[in-house]
Amino acid sequence: MNIIVCAKQVVDVSEVKVDPSTNKPVLTGIPKKISDIDKNAVEEAIRIKEKAGSGKITTITVGPPDAKEKIKELLAMGVDEGVLIPAPEEFDYHVVSSLLAGAIEKIGEYDLILCGEASIDMFSGQMGPRIAGILNIPQITYALKIDASEDRVVAERNMGDNMVTTESTYPALVTVTKEINEPRLPSLMQILGAARKPIHDWSAEDVGKAGLSTMTRTLDVRGVPMERKNITFKEDLDEAVPKMVEMLAKDGVLN
């Protein structure tokens, strides 16, 4: 079973603050990590490979050079090889999905492609279905549960109003939800072992996608600050509760 996982390095959004003087989100100096749900995708790939008994897991990342450190964490979890493609100066969904699709075609032999349901920073959930559209293969989105056997994959999907069970032969692209599993924490041995696993540097030319241009452009990114009173009661409940209820009544929100 050969599995490709698309894993994005993101800024840790919980650390993003809005600068009140410029009204812009401050992104410099914010810690980076692999997008949460992409780790679920990696975990699922490892479990599928373990069950199949053989195969290879490759992750592909479009991102800056410092993403290598984070890709190592995925290798430590159990991924066999990583691929890093530098993001061009200007990029958007079209550019990134084209590079990922190009890399997938270069890898060539694959059964399953796994993506996250959406990334934690931009949260569009566009990339998986976009890649499936480019490659013209089946797409199975929002998987809560995957059963991958030798010749087919069956997934239970949370589609909001409906729970949908979809199955497909290979190749197929599946996007996974946060609920599908609990990503493992690698052991020290695995972390050390990951140093020997390869991370390939591929260029846009290498994946046959040189000279891509963007189909969307960002005009502005405006911060949305949130102002709160931040009154916290830590004292005895018999004092705190009436005090708070009085304040709520004064705010006029109780009726």
Partner: peptide, 8 residues
């Protein structure tokens, strides 16, 4: 960015 910003 999880509601922290709006992009145009």
């Amino acid at each position: 960015y999880s509601g922290n910003a709006v992009s145009v």
